[in-house]
Amino acid sequence: MKYLVTGAAGFIGSSVAHKLCEAGHEVVGIDNINSYYDPGLKLARLELLSPLGGFKFIKVDLSEKEAIARIFSEHKFERVIHLGAQAGVRYSIDNPHAYIDSNINGHLNILEGCRNNGIEHLVYASSSSVYGTSNSTPYKTSSAVDHPISLYAATKRSNELMAHTYSHLFDIPVTGLRFFTVYGPWGRPDMAPFKFTKAVMEGKAIEVYNNGNLSRDFTYIDDIVESILRIQNVVPQKDKFTMSSPDVSTAPFKTYNIGNGSPVSLTRFIEAIESATGIKAIKKFLPMQAGDVFTTHADTRELFNAIDYQPKVSIEEGISRFVGWYIDYYGKK
């Protein structure tokens, strides 16, 4: 099949593109390779893809309406895996326009491309941040998502509403994935596994928010990619309207949580890094940060039932693999 993968130079996007190519599919990857974090890392990910048969990279910004329309028209994709976005919760506080350009206008351009080119399935990235400060855990896709606490979260919720509208109006099969904390080799430098490992290995203090009383639903990259590849083969079907459930959408549209389903405390997470590096962490305790939440915990049963797959990599094993990659890539001894 022929796929469009957006965010192909990103952490998750590059891994998805790699697996699709290995399976014999044709993949066009797009990315703007911006400077939100080290572009060199993004280019290094693309270097891993360039030798693979069937991969083509196009540098383009999602907000470039005509360019995105032209890519859709020229390449005649069958499926789209839309992972490109301006990431980061804290960054959105000081750089709001970047999120509107990429996450709103860019998402609209992808939806228009799907609408006008007969795409048989769009899978796109949402985020666990849509749950805001909800204390009702584990988060279910039916939980309230009306109170985002960052602009990033607001754009991701907007993506869900926009995607549903297009699915309803134009019968586009659409699946949204609310990602929880993804980590592993080639991971983002702005995420805790990377930042903490770097600080520990350099003998610097790690910033521990809310005195360490936080937990995250960490999910290893291989488990995430396997879940994405399986769910893109589960194409949503349009439901018939019935008076018995008038408040249920009839569009070919589904939303899933995609995560581990088992939160890890910040303490255990730090201990895993200490064990993998053999270095005791220096901790600098700080108050809760604006836009942060105390815990993330995904109710993933619906996704796992749909794809017959459960995450397999523990936080200790995953962090060990990440630290091994970090040492190899950055040459730290």
Rank of each mutant, 00 (worst) to 15 (best):
N32H: 09
S320I: 03
S320Y: 06
N213D: 15
R188E: 13
K195D: 03
A272S: 14
G176P: 04
G7R: 02
N109Q: 04
N233D: 13
Y166D: 03
T165I: 05
S245M: 07
S249T: 15
K59E: 09
N213V: 12
I231E: 02
N105A: 08
P138V: 09
I273P: 03
D146C: 10
I315S: 00
I206L: 06
Y309F: 14
Q310T: 01
V174K: 08
S244N: 07
F304H: 12
R268D: 04
M162C: 14
A17H: 06
Q232L: 06
K254C: 05
N260Q: 12
S63Y: 07
A69F: 01
D239F: 00
W186T: 03
Q310G: 05
L214M: 15
L169V: 12
S92R: 05
I68L: 13
K280I: 12
T165P: 00
G13Y: 04
D31I: 10
S167M: 08
D146I: 08
H75Q: 07
F253Y: 15
S136A: 12
G184Q: 04
R301N: 06
G84D: 02
S134V: 09
Q86H: 08
N213F: 14
A9F: 04
V200L: 05
G212Q: 09
D190N: 15
T6Q: 08
D38N: 15
A67C: 11
Y152P: 07
E47Y: 07
S15F: 11
F72V: 13
I100K: 07
E66R: 08
K76Q: 02
V208I: 11
T6A: 05
S275A: 10
L43S: 11
M1H: 01
S244I: 09
Y329W: 11
G187S: 14
Y131I: 00
L177S: 11
S249P: 10
K312W: 06
D101P: 07
F72E: 07
V80P: 15
H121L: 06
T296S: 03
H18P: 01
E66A: 05
Q86E: 13
Q237A: 08
N103D: 11
A85W: 04
K254Q: 11
A306D: 14
E120T: 15
H297L: 04
K312I: 13
Q310H: 13
S245C: 04
A153W: 13
D239T: 14
D223G: 14
G7P: 02
I206N: 00
S15D: 10
V80A: 13
I104C: 10
P138I: 06
I231T: 01
C114E: 09
Y139K: 06
E202Q: 05
K2F: 08
H97V: 07
K284F: 11
T242F: 05
S63T: 00
P173T: 00
S262G: 03
